[in-house]
Amino acid sequence: MTAALNRRQLREAVMHGFRTNSRLIEAGIRPQTGPAFLALLNQGALPRTEFETFIGLQPREACNQLSKVINVGLAVSSASNRHTLRVGLPLWFAQDIFPDFSLAKSEVKPG
């Protein structure tokens, strides 16, 4: 687990996921959105405007990418605070960036 949380390895895993994950590709999420998600993952929460700035695309496309990220569950925005994003980490993406997670989970036996 310590190796998986190494910043360099985590960055590589997230960027690889944003380039190759079929759900992200089908959703139209561009690889350029990876660094913004990584910043959100590292911090746990970010202002929407900061996330869009991290994407580095034109404002309209950055907003579009953010909507797609929310739709697939990688980011969460509550109705009570729409200006702040929290990290969402669906199991299908967690297994992509933490490949040993699924192995460790399957080894745990109910006691």
Rank of each mutant, 00 (worst) to 15 (best):
T2N: 08
L5M: 08
L5F: 13
N6E: 14
R7A: 12
R8D: 14
Q9G: 11
Q9I: 02
E12Q: 15
G17A: 00
F18I: 04
R19W: 10
R19A: 13
R19T: 06
T20S: 10
I25V: 13
E26H: 10
G28D: 01
P31V: 06
P31R: 05
Q32E: 14
T33C: 11
T33V: 13
A36K: 00
F37K: 02
L38I: 02
A39S: 01
L41W: 07
N42M: 04
N42T: 00
Q43A: 10
G44I: 04
R48F: 00
E52W: 05
E52F: 03
T53K: 06
C63T: 13
C63N: 04
Q65M: 12
L66W: 01
L66S: 00
V69K: 06
V69W: 06
I70R: 08
L74K: 03
L74G: 04
L74D: 07
S78I: 08
S80M: 11
S80T: 13
N81D: 15
T84L: 14
T84M: 14
R86Q: 15
R86C: 11
G88W: 03
L89H: 05
L89W: 05
L89V: 09
P90W: 06
L91M: 09
L91K: 09
F93M: 07
A94D: 02
A94P: 00
F98G: 03
F98E: 00
F98C: 03
P99N: 12
D100A: 02
F101C: 06
S102N: 12
A104D: 14
K105F: 08
K105H: 09
S106H: 10
V108L: 15
V108G: 04
P110G: 03
G111F: 15
